[in-house]
Design a protein around this nucleic acid. Structure first.
Length: 863
RNA sequence: GCCGGGGUGGCGGAACUGGCAGACGCUCGGGACUUAAAAUCCCGUGACCGUAAGGUCGUGUGGGUUCGAUUCCCACCCCCGGCACCA
């Protein structure tokens, strides 16, 4: 039967793939057709429309590394299902994409292959953009941004200057994490177990003048909001952020002129020594006065690998400084030691040693014979003797050996002792964070120039706003040697001071690329603005991002920086939102042969190869179906083929029925008299709409949504087979079978179910769905058709299966009316022969009819 | 050590608020169609006993609550992820 919209049917001919003959579902041609149409009609372009609810759907933008593999594109597929579904549900959907285009690999490629980082980057972008278009991701490409372009990084510089004005950006000399292989400084967030996050080299400390962003000013707020307003985030990510911010409440206490930080001031009567970090200022000073005692001992610690010291692999060691200080609570002098395990960068770089109640202090005291005093006893245990201690007891309890505070519970004691310390002027309550300010200086070329200069007369001078952007100069050669490539370009370095007109030298460091990605989602709201980073009104319309998805590896880097930047923008008066991402989904990786895909392992799956064989729709469907989006998946070709099979099944079904149900004169099934089979199919269709709708929104259970669609297709095959008195879907018989379906009610029910199916499949397999929708005689397209709705009454079953348990074991299944009364069910259960068998000779103790209408159960207890 | 998430067939995974465990798919097996194969369509596929009807066991382990537990509680084992001499 000819298709009503495209004329006579194309003859069936085989497409050879993997030496098989494919009947008539030919994804390649269809996909090309629709991708061209989407591009030509700018189908996914949007503008602010106050009349419609907005939905901002975003996937983490991509580093243009070259070729995207299936693991990379899974994320975009997930976002695309959400975006397409939301569009159909009537939302004004912003779904943009761009490129995190600055960064080290471009520079390394330039060094290795002699190309320019810009050339390398732009070529990669072009290729990857093509890949994404071939997958059919519905991006608003007019909004595409690349962070390496001056139109973008100008605004990094602009925000930097604003932050400078507000003392949120500052420069200081400090010991930083230096990666000897990448020739640059790393932020704390970029150091994993003492190694570079990118290349894995062991990081070494270095003293450098560095630019920092004062993220610590927002530590409290970032932490509080993680608890209060990020319900749409995975617990895993919130935990990681909480750990990273690392708030601990405690007190600073003066042991004479040494300030210690402690969270356990309740144990201060047991503080029998004080420990200083080797880098502590006091130790440095004493070392100068008394080299004999200090220098050799300190040298030993300096020689210890920083990585090993940080991970605790090095044995706890120390030495006596020969000095004593007075414990302000006991009034007793205690010795001051230097210890290699005390960190200068945390707290005050000095701690009180309480060996009875801290495992490290305990080990240290044992090793050097320092006294141990127990000052906390368990609430319900006998008091402990100091001599018999096998290990430190670090839990709370009741105070002992603590003078007037004996018997106080630890928590009360902490409050009281802190207050006493404050009133006596020997301490105060304080909060410490693990989070440190964000070091953003990088001694590399391919990044945003930091827009300041140094004038001999005026000192550090910010570049004027009207002179932005400070352009990144072109460099011809990349040697990879030298600390700061920009420093070797006199034309860049030498400039004029905007304040005094005298000679000045530009800052030659560039910004960490995480600056670029900390606000790009705001730029997408207004990507071509030449006056501001973005128009506040546009961000007010689109923000925050409603659905954000990306890899969990960004849980503390990008995702904490973005939260910080959003607050900075808020405090600059540019937006009113606090949190950038309302809902976060961290998608799982795609493994092949049990391992993460990587070029070096040779186990990458190129989406283009799969598209060539099975089409983009099958690829998308497979990746969505095989596991929940958060879980990692193991790639199998057989699974992809299964998804292809499902699409081909849908194709044949619609193709064969299009002549029967494609006409304009088919009535809606609502008012028609239906037979049992028709009613059952209609129920299945409505139930499927209900399930799929809820699985996609608000849940994002894409895999179970696909399962539900598969069930509906199975049901449709069984139905058409019965309705036509033969077998539908069989190639040879298809047209005949479809042609025999004539009963109007049957046609009406089929039309409703098949159309809903095509619409619901469309977020997963958009090309095929558009083609089928057109084939069914709807020239307006899927989005215009909208998401199908369901009638809860139709979705509800009229007859239900009621399981009957006897002593907890399933003994029978009753078929009953959905609204059967309890008594009725009880009687039916007792009358069932299988049940009666198990009741014989027993006494009935109890009969429970459980559940609500539509989901009942009878439970009988006998003895 | 602390924190978070998990443990369900041969495999990937379902199971909404305590109510039929194993949906859907993969794999494998059988049948229909075909001269034949492929494709397609249909059926079966947790283990054990049984010709069958049916029965017993079964969601990491051991207990508990309940008419009823993959789901709740207690104890433990294992796996994955994060943080980690942070005082």
């Amino acid at each position: 039967m000819p298709c009503t919209s495209c004329g006579p049917r194309s003859p069936r001919f085989g497409v050879d793939y993997n030496s098989r003959i494919v009947a008539d579902y030919k994804p390649q041609a269809i996909e090309k057709k629709w991708q061209d149409r989407w591009r030509e009609t700018r189908a996914f372009e949007v503008t602010e429309d106050p009349a419609k609810p907005k939905f901002y759907c975003l996937e983490m933008f991509a580093y243009p590394s070259g070729h995207a593999h299936v693991g990379h594109v899974r994320n975009y597929m997930i976002g695309d299902v959400v975006a397409r579904m939301k569009r159909m549900r009537g939302y004004n959907v912003l779904h943009p994409f761009g490129w995190d285009a600055f960064g080290l690999p471009a520079e390394n490629a330039a060094i290795k292959h002699g190309t320019h980082p810009e050339t390398w980057t732009l070529e990669n972008i072009a290729h990857m953009k093509g890949q994404l278009q071939r997958i059919g991701i519905s991006y608003a490409w007019e909004r595409e941004i690349a962070t390496c372009l001056p139109e973008y990084y100008k605004w990094n510089q602009w925000v930097f200057l604003k932050m400078l004005e507000r003392d949120l950006a500052y420069k200081r000399r400090s010991s930083v994490n230096w990666c000897p292989s990448c020739h640059t400084v790393l932020a704390n967030e970029q150091v994993i177990n003492g190694a570079c996050w990118r290349c894995g080299s062991s990081v070494t400390p270095r003293e450098l003048e560095q630019w920092f962003f004062r993220i610590t000013r927002y530590a409290d707020e970032l932490l509080a909001a993680a608890d209060a307003s990020l319900q749409g985030w995975p617990e895993k990510v919130l935990t990681m952020q909480r750990n990273w911010i690392g708030r601990s409440e405690g007190a600073r206490v003066k042991f004479d002129d040494i300030d210690v930080f402690t969270t356990r001031i309740d144990t201060i009567f047991g503080a029998t020594f004080v420990l200083l970090a080797p880098e502590h200022a006091k130790v440095q000073a004493w070392s100068k006065e008394d080299p004999a005692r200090f220098v050799d001992a300190l040298k030993k610690f300096q020689g210890q690998d920083r990585t090993a010291r940080m991970t605790g692999e090095v044995e706890k060691e120390g030495f006596d400084t020969g000095r004593t200080v007075v414990n302000p609570f006991t009034g007793q002098p205690v010795p001051v030691w230097v210890a290699n395990f005390v960190l200068v960068e945390y707290g005050t770089g000095a701690v009180m040693g309480v060996p009875a109640h801290d495992q490290r202090d305990f080990e240290f005291a044992r090793k050097y014979g320092l006294p141990v005093t127990v000052v906390v006893r368990p609430v319900d245990g006998a008091s402990l003797s100091g001599d018999a201690l096998e290990e430190a007891t670090d839990s709370d309890g009741l105070l002992m050996n603590s003078g007037p505070y004996d018997g106080l519970p630890s928590s009360r004691a902490r409050e009281q002792l802190t207050e006493v310390a404050r009133s006596r002027g020997v301490g105060e309550g304080t909060v410490q964070y693990r989070l440190k300010d964000w070091g953003i200086s990088r001694q590399r070329y391919w990044g945003t120039p930091i827009p300041v200069m140094y004038c001999d007369r005026c000192g550090m001078v910010p570049e004027r706003y009207e002179n932005l952007p400070v352009l990144l100069p072109k460099i011809g050669e990349f040697s990879g040697r030298g600390d700061s490539p920009l420093g070797q370009i006199p034309a860049f370095v030498n400039t004029t001071c905007p304040t005094c007109g005298g000679p000045a030298r530009r800052e030659t460091d560039t910004m960490d690329t995480f600056v670029d990605s900390s606000w790009y989602f705001l730029r997408f709201c207004d990507p071509t603005n030449t006056d501001l980073p973005f128009d506040p009104a546009k961000v007010a319309y689109w923000g925050p991002v409603d659905f954000y998805s990306g890899g969990v590896e960004h849980a503390i880097l990008h995702l904490i920086y973005s939260r910080f930047f959003t607050r900075v923008c808020r405090d600059l008066g540019m937006t009113t939102i606090d949190e950038p991402f309302a809902r976060l989904l961290t998608q799982g990786m795609v493994l092949k042969d049990g391992q993460v895909m990587s070029k070096s392992k040779g186990n990458v799956v190129d989406p283009d190869d799969m598209i060539q064989k099975f089409g983009a729709d099958a690829l998308r469907l497979y990746v969505m179906f095989v596991a929940p989006p958060e879980k990692e998946i193991e790639w199998t070709d057989a699974g992809l083929e299964g998804s292809w099979r499902f699409l081909a099944r849908v194709w044949r079904l619609v193709d064969q029925l299009s002549g029967t149900i494609g006409g304009d004169d088919v009535p809606a099934p609502a008012g028609l008299a239906l037979d049992d089979a028709e009613r059952a199919l209609r129920r299945k269709a409505h139930e499927t709409i209900r399930r799929v709708t809820l699985d996609l929104d608000p849940r994002v259970h894409l895999n179970t949504a696909v399962s539900a669609l598969m069930e509906l297709v199975n049901e449709l095959y069984a139905f058409t087979s019965r309705a036509s008195g033969g077998r539908a879907g069989t190639d040879a018989d298809a047209e005949v079978n479809a042609g025999t379906i004539e009963r109007p009610a049957t046609v009406a029910v089929l039309k409703e179910a098949v159309e809903a199916l095509v619409l619901m499949v469309s977020p997963f397999a958009p090309h095929m769905a558009e083609e089928l929708w057109e084939m069914l005689g709807h020239p307006g397209g899927i989005v215009a058709a909208g998401w199908p709705s369901f009638d809860p009454d139709v979705a509800k079953a009229s007859e239900i299966i009621v399981p009957v348990q006897v002593n907890g074991k399933l003994r029978a299944r009753l078929t009953a009316s959905a609204d059967a009364a309890e008594d009725q069910l009880r009687e039916m259960a007792m009358a069932d022969p299988h049940v009666m068998k198990h009741l014989e000779g027993r006494t009935i103790r109890k009969v429970v009819v459980a559940g609500v209408a539509g989901n009942r159960l009878v439970s009988i207890v006998v003895s």
